[in-house]
């Protein structure tokens, strides 16, 4: 009797060890698959012997040549453009999104439901459609090509009010009784926002800043429209995309890798530092839909 129990226990333990081993193998394999492209990028960025694509990973000759070439190219300008856009957009977009989401979470006014439904419907139109016209409007305002940076900032910030869902979901979780208590004590609505809600909303504020900052680094289509072939107005995505086109890839492939590393480093560091808030925002937002 006792023996069989022990055997069963042993069996359970063995099967758990086996399943855990399988899981470890899968996880290690996954980590490798997920990291390989990035390791390759880093390695290729140090390859000196040739600038085109090759069929091996480890460079035969190491050096900083690609980074030096990068420094001497338009990349510096693109990088500055993108950084500037990301910085300004991060601030302004956060303000707009917070205004929008706080209002829709806390106030009950006549047009509120209609407004939310309207924005839901607006969101179903492919954004691609509006690019042509936005481009023409910016062109009329003189904010394209070399002046693309303010133009891009304007468009990113102006249309950011639609992305209020995640932070509204967060505000919804802050109890309304807090507002009411402050109101009874004589605080105005504005004071409730600045003195009570904002200090509590730190995670979502950071989440919004983080996503707003990361967005412009990856924007490609609209930025390409607006800069329209003028190098001075490009962001990193548009500029580096041109390096991988058929006519340039032979000379610029390794430079692209070096550029990728330089772009990824600050964003990744920032992201890893604020990861906690990002996870909170993403999980909260998905649950609220």
């Amino acid at each position: 009797m006792n023996e069989t129990l022990e055997k069963r226990h042993m069996g359970l333990k063995a099967s758990r060890t086996i399943s855990n081993t399988i899981i470890y193998i899968i996880l290690i394999l996954m980590s490798v698959i997920w990291l390989i492209p990035f390791i390759c990028i880093v390695l290729q960025s140090f390859r000196v012997e040739s600038t085109w694509q090759v069929g091996y990973v480890i460079p035969k000759q190491w050096g900083w040549d690609n980074y030096i070439a990068l420094w001497n190219s338009d990349f510096r300008k693109w990088y500055f453009n993108t950084f500037l856009i990301a910085l300004i957009v991060a601030v302004l977009q956060t303000v707009i999104v917070l205004c929008m989401s706080y209002t829709l979470s806390r106030f009950r006014f006549k047009l509120r439901d209609g407004l939310m439904r309207f924005m839901l419907i607006l969101g179903m139109f492919p954004g691609m459609l509006t690019m042509i016209i936005l481009y023409r409007v910016l062109k009329d305002l003189g904010l394209t090509q070399a002046n693309a940076v303010p133009g891009l900032i304007l468009v990113y910030v102006a249309s950011s009010g639609m992305g209020y869902y995640v932070s509204k979901g967060f505000f919804d979780t802050i109890p309304k009784s807090l507002d009411e208590a402050a109101r009874i004590d004589g605080a105005t609505r504005a004071q409730v926002l600045t003195k009570i809600i904002l200090p509590l909303a730190k995670p979502i504020v950071i989440y919004t800043i983080l996503t707003a900052f990361m967005g412009p680094w990856g924007d490609f289509v609209f930025a390409r429209y607006v800069s329209f072939g003028t190098s001075a107005g490009m962001n990193v995505a548009v500029g580096m995309y041109s390096w991988l086109q058929l006519d340039r890839i032979g000379q610029s492939y390794t430079m692209f890798c070096a550029g990728g590393v330089i772009v990824a480093i600050p964003v990744t560091i920032l992201f890893m530092c604020l990861q906690k808030y990002y996870v909170e925002g993403v999980t909260g937002g998905a649950v609220k839909g």
Binding site: L35, M214, M272
Partner: peptide
């Protein structure tokens, strides 16, 4: 390891 890949801009 997995989350890090979210940080890297998609175009890269």
């Amino acid at each position: 390891v997995l989350v890090m890949t979210i940080a890297i801009p998609q175009f890269i």
